[in-house]
């Protein structure tokens, strides 16, 4: 393979109940569209998008998994190599929120222990049908040591922020790991100011 044109490659896996809008989030981010009447995902879908954060090229490999129980044995095999997991629920569906502990058990069992998990409440465009209060979700996320974000794939709210923030966190973690493992060989440009990575609303 030719020299890859990126500084970092991260694997992001989306998980969560069926119908919470995982595929729509991915489509919105990777293709900029909202496919109405999207059918259930079968197995696993795979998308790639390269973003640039402050001059650092980050290739995001996004695995969109089927939420249905019957496809679980296929989707589970992707957890271990994931750098980040986007655990998604639907703010208009209490059930999808109540299943979160079950998903966390899956993560505990199959993912590696350095994985970054972010909780996402999707469909905020349907505010009048909201069943899960923001505060409740925030508290849950905090208790589980997860980041939290609310999005609307339909209105494109926070979708870009979700993936870019995640990329920032992953870059930071990757840099820390390199420093821990091999402090004699820092990455180019490192040691200047790592905190500039914390703001990444610029694409």
């Amino acid at each position: 393979m030719a020299m890859e044109d990126y500084d970092y490659l991260f694997k992001i896996v989306l998980i969560g109940n069926a119908g919470v809008g995982k595929t729509c989030l991915v489509r919105r981010f990777t293709q900029g569209l909202f496919p109405p009447g999207q059918g259930a995902t079968i197995g696993v879908d795979f998308m790639i998008k390269t973003v640039e954060i402050k001059g650092v090229k980050v290739k995001l490999q996004i695995w969109d998994t089927a939420g249905q129980e019957r496809f679980r044995s296929i989707t589970q095999s992707y957890y271990r190599s994931a750098n980040a997991l986007i655990l998604t629920y639907d703010i208009t569906c209490e059930d999808s929120f109540r299943c979160l502990p079950e998903w966390l058990r899956e993560i505990e069992q199959y993912a590696n222990n350095q994985v970054v998990t972010i909780l996402v409440g999707n469909k905020i465009d349907l505010a009048d049908k909201r069943e899960v209060h923001r505060q409740r979700a925030e508290e849950f996320a905090e208790a589980q040591n997860m980041l939290y974000l609310e999005t609307s794939a339909k209105e494109s709210d926070n979708v870009e922020k979700l993936f870019l923030d995640l990329a920032c966190v992953l870059i930071r973690e990757a840099k820390q790991n390199t420093l821990d493992n091999n402090d004699s060989a820092p990455m180019p440009g490192e040691g200047k100011n790592i905190s500039y990575l914390s703001c990444c609303n610029v694409n």
Binding site: G39, I42, R70, F71, R72, S73, I74
Partner: peptide, 18 residues
């Protein structure tokens, strides 16, 4: 991809993999 057949195949694979 979305036809019932491929869905069933996928399910069968789901049983096979474990």
């Amino acid at each position: 991809k979305d036809c019932q057949l491929s869905c069933t195949v996928q399910e069968l694979i789901g049983y096979y993999i474990p």
